[in-house]
């Protein structure tokens, strides 16, 4: 199981201090939401978890080992935009993870291997509610469906950590509620720790087991540059949610065995 430790983490761009002295321990299989005002460094923090940015000082440990210097298959990601490949169909997007891992030279699968991977991919596509859209290109999908696809694509690789950078920020509220349900189901069923950056406090408390607020404690113009954001609030969501276990308090959203309903952006419903 994968836990993340962050120790004395600082991030500076030249003179500008973005994050200062961040210390965090994320338990394995937790669902952590990072919230805070714009420009407080929560996305920068996520990018460091992704190895896209390097810490100026301090370290990030995953299972006690220093984080890899480049993005890798252990950490999946869904961005707000550009998460899926426009030149691949829905099926192609999800298959890509299998093709990368099983076919180092051509990055394509043929015959039995392809059929096996395709079966897995189709199951996953159905799981995220995109059954019937396998042969569509992302441009033909709505924003909500694209994010569902991005989730399926990331989960195909079975990452131990899933990083979400405001993944549902651009979706309208109805579609967001549907995809929250999907997100909870995936978190319950897949063996992964989730770290999500969001603007939306309601979303944070709906989904997460723990909500962490970043804030600059000194924000006057003359101080802003030399003081970065720190952790202002660290809230364990109560009643506690545990991955894979039935949630008695808000069963409508959290039940891992809850039958999936039709979402507003389900392809079947759109065509009706």
């Amino acid at each position: 199981m994968t836990a993340i430790s962050v120790r004395n983490l600082w991030k500076e761009y030249g003179d500008q201090i973005v994050l200062e002295d961040i210390n965090l321990e994320f338990a394995a299989r937790s669902f952590v939401a990072l919230v805070g005002p714009s420009g407080c460094g929560k996305t920068t923090f996520l990018r460091m978890l992704l190895s896209e940015e390097k810490a100026t000082r301090g370290e990030i440990l995953i299972d006690g080992k220093p984080i890899a210097p480049e993005p890798g298959a252990d950490r999946g990601v869904v961005f707000q935009r550009y998460s899926v490949f426009p030149h691949l169909t829905v099926l192609g997007n999800v298959l890509l993870a299998a093709e990368f891992s099983q076919s180092p030279f051509t990055a394509r699968l043929f015959g039995t291997a392809r059929r096996a991977a395709e079966e897995e991919a189709r199951a996953l596509i159905a799981e995220v509610g995109l059954a019937g859209a396998e042969d569509k290109y992302p441009a033909a999908l709505s924003g909500g469906m694209q994010q569902r696809l991005a989730l399926a694509q990331a989960i195909m690789r079975k990452p131990r950590i899933l990083l979400l950078d405001e993944p549902f920020g651009a979706l309208d509220p109805g579609i967001r509620a549907d995809i929250h349900q999907l997100m909870r189901r995936l978190w319950n069923s897949c063996e992964m720790t989730v770290v999500m950056v969001t603007h939306d406090l309601r979303e944070a408390f709906t989904l997460a087991t723990r909500v962490i607020a970043f804030e600059r404690r000194r924000n006057r113009p003359e101080e802003r540059e030399r003081f970065g954001a720190t952790i202002a609030k660290d809230i364990e969501v109560w009643p506690p949610r545990i991955a894979g276990q039935l949630d008695l308090f808000t069963p409508d959203r959290d039940d891992p065995v809850l039958a999936e309903g039709q979402g507003r952006d389900d392809p079947a419903r759109r065509s009706a």
Binding site: L50, R75, G76, F79, F85, L96, R157, P159
Partner: peptide, 10 residues
């Protein structure tokens, strides 16, 4: 984002 995504897919 595309390159990063591809890297996270291995």
């Amino acid at each position: 984002e595309q390159t990063i995504k591809a890297e996270t897919l291995g």
